[in-house]
Amino acid sequence: MSLLLLLAAFVAGGADFTCTPVAVWDGDGPIWCAEGPRIRLSGIATRELDESCKPGHPCPPGTGKAARDHLVKLLGGPRGRLNTGHVKVRAPALRCTSMGSGKGARTAALCAAPKVGDLSCAMVRSGHALRWRRYGGDRLCSR
C-alpha cells in the first residue's frame, strides 16, 4: 500500500465521516470501510485473536474470537472471509467521529450503527470489551 493511500484513508481528529463496513479483524478493529478508512473503535480494549492482551491495555474476560464474532454480529453478520483472515461483512453505513490516529494506518473513532447505536458501548455492555480511557474511553455509556 502506498504512503499516499494510507494518508488518504486517515481521518483527522474531530472530523465526522461515514464508514460502510466491509471487513473486521477483531473485537476493537480494524473495521475496514468501503470509503477507505480502517477504524479502531475508540475507548475500548478486547483480547487479541491469539487470546493475549497487549501490555498496558485492559484485559477483558472471554476470548478474542468471541469479541470479534460479536462485533461482526452487531454489524449484520459474517459474509465469508478475505484471504487476509478478515471476516467480510455487509452492513449499513456507520456514523463516525474521528478521535485521531489509532496507530499505524488506522483512525481511532467513535461509531454508531443504525440499529445498535454506539458500537464501543455495545461491546462493553456485552462483556466482550472493557473501557479504556485511551481515545475517548472516559465517556459514559447508557445501559
Rank of each mutant, 00 (worst) to 15 (best):
A15M: 03
A15T: 08
D16A: 15
F17S: 12
F17W: 14
T18R: 15
T18W: 03
T18P: 02
A23H: 04
A23E: 08
W25F: 02
W25D: 02
W25S: 10
W25Y: 13
G27M: 12
G27P: 14
D28L: 11
D28M: 11
D28K: 00
P30V: 05
I31G: 05
W32M: 01
W32D: 12
W32F: 03
C33L: 02
G36T: 07
G36C: 07
R38Y: 00
I39K: 03
I39G: 05
I39P: 05
R40I: 07
L41N: 04
L41E: 03
L41H: 09
L41D: 02
G43D: 05
A45Y: 08
T46M: 09
T46I: 04
E51H: 02
S52T: 15
C53Y: 06
C53D: 03
G56K: 09
G56V: 13
P58R: 05
C59W: 09
P60G: 12
P60E: 09
P60W: 09
P61L: 01
G62S: 09
T63D: 03
G64W: 13
K65L: 15
A66H: 00
A66M: 01
A67K: 07
A67H: 08
D69C: 03
H70F: 09
L71P: 01
V72P: 04
K73T: 09
K73A: 04
L75H: 07
L75T: 08
L75E: 04
G76P: 02
G76N: 06
G77D: 08
G77V: 10
G77N: 05
P78Y: 01
R79F: 03
R79N: 14
G80D: 06
L82N: 12
L82G: 11
N83I: 03
G85Q: 11
G85A: 06
H86G: 01
H86T: 02
V87F: 13
V87W: 07
K88I: 12
V89N: 13
V89W: 14
R90V: 15
R90M: 01
A93M: 06
L94F: 08
L94S: 05
R95N: 04
R95H: 15
C96D: 14
C96Y: 11
C96T: 07
T97I: 08
T97V: 15
M99Q: 14
M99W: 02
G100F: 10
S101Q: 01
S101M: 07
K103I: 06
R106M: 14
T107W: 10
A108W: 05
A108P: 02
A108F: 12
A109T: 06
A109C: 08
A109M: 05
C111P: 01
P114W: 01
K115F: 03
K115I: 00
V116G: 00
V116L: 00
